[in-house]
Every structure is written in structure tokens, then in C-alpha cells.
Design a binder for these strands. Sequence first.
DNA 1: CCGTATCCATTCCGATACTG
DNA 2: CAGTATCGGAATGGATACGG
Lengths: 152, 152
Amino acid sequence: MVEDVSTQSRECPVARTLEAIGDRWSLMIIRDAFDDIRRFSEFQKSLGVAKNILASRLKTLVEVGVFDIRPASDGSAYKEYVLTDKGREIFPIVISLRQWGERFLFKPEETRSVLLDNASGQPLMPLEVRSANGQKLGPLDCHRVRLVDGES
Amino acid sequence: MVEDVSTQSRECPVARTLEAIGDRWSLMIIRDAFDDIRRFSEFQKSLGVAKNILASRLKTLVEVGVFDIRPASDGSAYKEYVLTDKGREIFPIVISLRQWGERFLFKPEETRSVLLDNASGQPLMPLEVRSANGQKLGPLDCHRVRLVDGES
DNA sequence: CCGTATCCATTCCGATACTG
DNA sequence: CAGTATCGGAATGGATACGG
């Protein structure tokens, strides 16, 4: 009874990802972490989120393994939240969200933040979905299958 | 006061994207659309979501410009929800979510759905963030700036 | 078959106050 | 500074019933 949803969640990686980090604040927190924000108050100031919410999200993100807690780099007795490897690998997700938004959700004149390559000062290349041998792929070039046991 | 949040939302493409399609169901609906699901009942069956919620999400996704409503392709007097160009460009977002989930949220033995390239039958290449001239980029290789007027 | 309307439970969020 | 505790309101979710 009503097990469809859980089945979806259990087996679909998209669903699991959304469950783990797909809420309204988590991805914003992670976005800030990519801008080297590490301290509670910095997140709080940047996001304007209530402190209890922020505390709750940081806690679950630590549990999920996206952040590590470390003692502060300066003398202060407090903590820093730094991305783990797992957390850093969220980079393409944030970039894909950013690029879609830049392209479809802003008028040209509107003020916005953009991400530039340090080396060249240029905007990034649009993300592209590619096959194992490098061909560019669209939605119609793929199909979904159920992989039952982790066999190749 | 408390204008920080809205400022964020107004100027950050990531925030705007999450506001538009970043809720729990929208991205799942879009994921299904990439599997050629078009009809209300098909979405409903696939997702196990309540009908009122589905109706609400579809409506806003149409308003946002991600879906178009078309008369059904068969004779039936009903509608189909098909992705617009804007909607199809969400593909990299869904793929990035999927790949992160596959990599970090499943144990090797767990049953899961995977996406294969039609031509080769192989899994896709992991998405990579690249600079304008093709260099692979990590989070530390970029910086965010405020672009005030759409210049350049 | 495709939704809309209603109702209720749960969750989420923000503001405030409080602790070490 | 870095949280925790609490509270009320808003949004979200599910179940069901109903109409085109």
C-alpha cells in the first residue's frame, strides 16, 4: 500500500539525492561553501535564514557526510564546516543549477552573480552530457534501465 | 527588513532555479518527462504523488515555461505535458543529481536505475565543469562576481 | 480519464528568547 | 559567537469525494 514512492526513492538516484540535499536550504548552504564560507554566522548572514533552521540543516548535512566539522582555523574555540570529498563533488549540481538559471531566469539587463574561471576571467563552458566515448547526448539519446545487482 | 534573502534570490541564479523547480516533486516530474512520460495519470502512477499535488506542480511548471500543454497525441480529448526547450535544458541538472546519487548514495549491491546511452549501451561520462577553453575546473578554480548590468 | 475542491495531518520556517 | 528551545503561522502532503 502506497509503496510506489518509497520504491522510487530507494531505487532512483535522482530521488535519493533530492532527499539528501534537495531541500530549499541545503543546496544554498553548499553553494556558499563553494565560496569558502565556513562559519555558522557567515552562512547565517549570507543566507538570511533563521538560526535554528541553519543549525538543523548543517547537522543533517554533517550526518549525510557532505560537511566535516573542524576546529576553527583561527584561535577561536569554534567550529568550521568544510566540505568533504563527497560534498565537493556536488559542484556540477550547483553549476548546472546556476547555468540554467542564468540562461532562462534572467533578463539580460538584470543584475546577477556570475561565476568566472580564475585563470582566464571568463565564464565557464556550459555543462554538457556526454556518452562514454565523448559524444554529446540529449534526453532522447538515453534510456533508463533497472540495474538489479550492481553487476557492471 | 530582512532583505538579505530576497537579494540572494533576486541575484543568484542558483537561488532562482531552486525557487522555480527546486522543490521535492518538480524535479521528479521532469525526470519522468525525460523518460517520455506525458500524461497526468502516468506521472501520478510513476510518482505515487497525490493528484492535487501533481496538478498543482504541473500548473506551476507550465507557468514557469518548463512544460507546454498539448492535446493528446491519440484521439483522447485530454492533454499532454511536454517539455519545452527550456524544460529540456534541465537535462544536465537531472544528470548531475543522478550521477552524484549513484556514486555516493548507493552501495554497490543495491538495486538502482541507471541511465544508458542508446548507441553504446554504456553509462554516461561523468559531468565535468570546464572553463571556456576546455580546462577541467574544480570549486577552487572559480570565483563569483556581481555582474551589475549585463555588460559583456 | 483528468483533474478540482475540501479537509486534515505533518512538516517547515521565521522570530524571539535563552544558554555557554 | 554558536548554537538550543519554543511557539505560531505558512506551506506541503495525502486521502477522499466530486464534476467535466
